[in-house]
């Protein structure tokens, strides 16, 4: 081998740099890019927001308007795909899209109606989430389903105490 071998190699491989962005660059199958949200499927359970490391997905309850907002901000996203993994209704899909430079700050927002507690009137979850759980448990305890976690706890204890001790 002599230093001429470099020239030989250079002639052999030619130009390898692609003329991106004028030329299309194909990423392999399964590459993780922009997550896609299906607002018709989302039940607002917050599972995605819980696992999201960089807080790209946030869930905010607007009590005045009675809605829950699931917000996604691409600028914080690290494209790990954990949200799609934990979504119970497969509302999130990871696409191969990686060209994400936008002119404006893009936020994706899903608005879902909140359910009010039938006892104290505090909104506690979304209608869709409730229906989803109802579908899972089948003929469950419909009267408990409309109570918020606090009232549910109280109601369970009350129903437990009364038959045993009579009056407390």
């Amino acid at each position: 081998m002599s230093r001429l071998s470099w020239i030989k190699k250079a002639l052999e491989v030619g130009v390898v740099t692609k003329k991106y962005p004028f030329e299309h660059v194909e990423v392999p199958e399964g590459s993780r890019g922009l997550p896609e949200f299906d607002s018709s499927k989302c039940i607002g359970c917050s599972a995605c927001a819980n696992v999201c490391t960089p807080d790209a997905i946030r869930v905010v309850d607007d009590l005045n308007e009675g809605v829950r907002r699931v917000e996604y901000f691409v600028g914080r996203c690290i494209f790990c795909g954990r949200c799609a993994e934990v979504c119970p209704v497969s509302a999130i899909k990871i696409t191969k899209e990686f060209e994400l430079a936008y002119k404006d700050e893009v936020r994706f927002i899903i608005e879902l109606k909140l359910v009010k507690c039938s006892n104290c009137g505090k909104p506690f979850t979304t209608t869709r989430h409730l229906n989803y759980v109802l579908g899972k448990v089948g003929e469950g305890l419909p009267e408990l389903m409309t109570l918020c976690p606090d009232c549910r706890r109280k109601s369970t204890i009350n129903s437990f105490i009364t038959p045993v001790g009579g009056t407390v």
Partner: peptide, 25 residues
């Protein structure tokens, strides 16, 4: 230049296996 040219297919392999060139996650 040549070292980095040879490296590029390895980066492609990483992306193929894990879904990302660098932060495999």
């Amino acid at each position: 230049m040549h070292a980095w040219r040879i490296r590029e297919p390895v980066m492609y392999l990483a992306e193929l296996l894990t879904g990302s060139r660098k932060t495999y996650g």
